[in-house]
Design a protein around this nucleic acid. Structure first.
Length: 228
DNA sequence: GAGTGATCATAA
DNA sequence: TTATGATCACTC
């Protein structure tokens, strides 16, 4: 039984990071919050990103919103994922902001999506709404990298979506596009606008979008690491 | 019930 | 304003 203690600094190695992460397994969010000296929200109607930030804090990720991975030096992105009693994801997974302008010349290999998901430390957490946040249990974290098939699936969807954006079809893209990777609004509210490419190549204003991984995709990842 | 579109908090 | 962390909640 490993005892978890709050980190003082960023992990220097993958081993160190994994050791910290594994020490969290089996604990509830309430227990972890107590160690971190923070209060658990009664529900997530307001602080929706609370869980993710708590885990970041516990693993020594540098705070703040960066376009970089959470552990840039290790090339690892941290993601918590809410699961049900069967270990299946309850929500889609946000990957990153979608570029809507100046997209000429960007490729999958250098895209922010590809960069973010190259190596992910998944931290599955009980996300059932019937369970109070403080009683939600952290499952075993694991490190994942997309295999050739998965990389291809995401690249195909990404290319389709990026082409539509480049052609000024942003307003025609819905969350139904993309088999595994989807594009959805990503903003504080519906009033937020950002620049994008219009039908005739002009600048238009639209709601910002973000890339999300469908549950089917993350579900498969969880499955392969949960069976055993 | 599932899934899409909407929304909340925070940092820089 | 952009981007991070995500979940909410309404419509189908």
């Amino acid at each position: 039984m490993k005892i978890f203690s709050m980190p003082k600094a960023e992990p220097r190695t993958i081993q160190e990071l994994m050791q910290r992460a594994e020490a969290l397994a089996g604990l509830t969010l309430g227990e972890v919050a107590k160690l971190a000296n923070v209060k658990v929200p009664v529900n997530f109607k307001r602080e929706k990103g609370w869980t993710g930030q708590l885990i970041e804090l516990c693993l020594g990720a540098s705070a703040g919103s960066k376009t970089q991975q959470d552990f840039a030096k290790l090339g690892i992105e941290l993601k918590t994922i809410p699961i049900d009693e069967h270990g299946k994801p309850l929500e889609t997974t946000y990957v990153c902001y979608a570029p809507l302008t100046d997209i000429a010349g960007i490729e999958w290999s250098t895209s922010s999506v590809k960069n973010k998901i190259q190596q992910v430390l998944w931290v599955p957490i009980d996300g059932r709404r019937a369970v109070a946040p403080q009683d939600r249990c952290i499952a075993s974290p694991f490190l994942w990298s997309p295999d050739a098939v998965q990389d291809n699936q995401l690249r195909t969807d990404w290319e389709e979506l990026m082409e539509m954006i480049a052609l000024g079809q942003i307003e025609n893209i819905t969350a139904r596009h993309g088999q595994y990777l989807q594009l959805r609004p990503k903003a504080a509210n519906g009033d937020v606008l950002t620049e994008a490419i219009g039908k005739n190549g002009q600048i238009i204003y639209t709601r910002p979008r973000g890339f999300y991984l469908r549950k089917e995709f993350t579900g498969k990842i969880l499955q392969t690491f949960f069976k055993n």
